[in-house]
């Protein structure tokens, strides 16, 4: 199937979503995704940041789709023409979504462990407004400890449901979910049950914001002061392939190996993540290549390639360059 995204044509298999097709092309034309996660079945469609315009539905039916569609959950048709950054309408909608996501966000980036590797931070840097138009009081929840290793800060949550899907699909025994509805929902374990599972720590990796953070790394360091190293060990629970975040010879934290879209290559177990913090536990392979746009790539392991921009719209691209 042949699909054209922002004037670039690519051949993909049937059933591919627009977002996956765009990732095959790569570069600036990839729509951002806050809730969709390729490894989690059923995720996506909720945050609406990946909305794109379908200018031509297919070769057979050249009509445009009446509304913007979520690229993460819309399958491509042969001959489909999609506009992402070449459509002012899409950029306008994305700006609106970022504004919606931020009106209840506490904007506590200075004290947030996710700062520097936060998808919402990157997104608002690219599409956000300079000032807020909302005067309403922000939604507030007390921070909750989910077990002795995970911290849940609901104020920062954007309700992407990724952690719920992870708990459902990776850990096998889900004890947390979404409670309430409307503007009052929260991710919770109801009776603050400990998530008792070897793989529960993965909810930290899938969280696009700082809502779920690692208590063993809490306030230890800013992520951009750490060197990300690929490391491995023989683990009886998981593949044992991780990224070790180091300062000198000290391991500050362990995460899954994330690709440039922030998705882990493999889910890792809690033993690797929380308990093996000694240099001697790991075989260090070498520096991790980080090609994300956020501040952690300032560790200049890889020279960032300046992306080419197709038909830029006036006034929208200076900030990105």
């Amino acid at each position: 199937m042949r699909v054209t995204i922002d004037d670039i044509t690519v051949d993909v298999e049937e059933g591919t979503t627009i977002l996956t097709a765009a990732r095959k092309i790569g570069g600036k034309i990839v729509p951002p995704a806050m809730c969709w996660y390729s490894k989690l079945k059923g995720s996506g469609g909720k945050c609406r940041t990946c909305l794109v315009k379908v200018a031509q539905s297919s070769a057979k039916d050249p009509r445009p789709m009446p509304k913007l569609v979520a690229s993460c959950s819309t399958p491509v048709q042969d001959g489909m023409v999609v506009q992402n950054i070449t459509s002012p309408e899409v950029l306008e909608a994305r700006k609106a979504i970022v504004e919606f996501l931020l009106i209840n966000h506490p904007l506590d980036c200075p004290v947030c462990d996710q700062a520097g590797e936060c998808d919402l931070q990157d997104l608002s840097f690219l599409h956000g407004m300079v000032e807020t138009r909302s005067e309403e009081p922000r939604r507030e929840f007390p921070a909750i400890d989910i077990g002795d290793k995970i911290k849940l800060n609901m104020n920062r949550c954007i309700l992407c449901y990724r952690c719920v899907f992870t708990a459902d699909q990776i850990t096998g025994k889900r004890v947390h979910g979404v409670l309430y509805r409307g503007d009052a929902p929260e991710i919770s374990t109801y009776i603050q049950n400990v998530i008792d599972n070897d793989f529960s720590g993965n909810v930290i990796d899938v969280c696009p914001v700082g809502a779920l953070t690692d208590r063993t790394f809490r306030f230890k360091s800013r992520v951009w002061f750490l060197n990300a190293m690929d490391a491995h060990r023989d683990c009886t629970h998981c593949g044992g392939k991780v990224t070790a975040w180091m300062y000198g010879n000290e391991i500050y934290r362990i995460t899954g190996r994330k690709d440039k879209y922030g998705e882990v290559e493999e889910f890792i177990c809690n033993e690797c993540r929380f308990e093996k913090k000694n240099f001697s536990d790991w075989i260090i392979e070498g520096p991790r290549k980080i090609s994300r746009e956020s501040v952690i790539s300032a560790n200049h392991y890889e020279k960032l390639i300046k992306p080419s921009i197709i038909h830029p719209i006036e006034g929208t691209t200076e900030k990105q360059e």
Binding site: G45, K46, C47, R48, A96, I97, F100, L101, I103, N104, S134, E136, I158, L159, Y161, V178, Y180, R181, G182, D183, A184, P185
Partner: peptide, 22 residues
Amino acid sequence: YRHESCGQCSPCREGTAWMEPI
């Protein structure tokens, strides 16, 4: 609408709760 929004997608969850107090 604020009360009945399911809270799943961001424009509706945040937007309905923003319009009501205004």
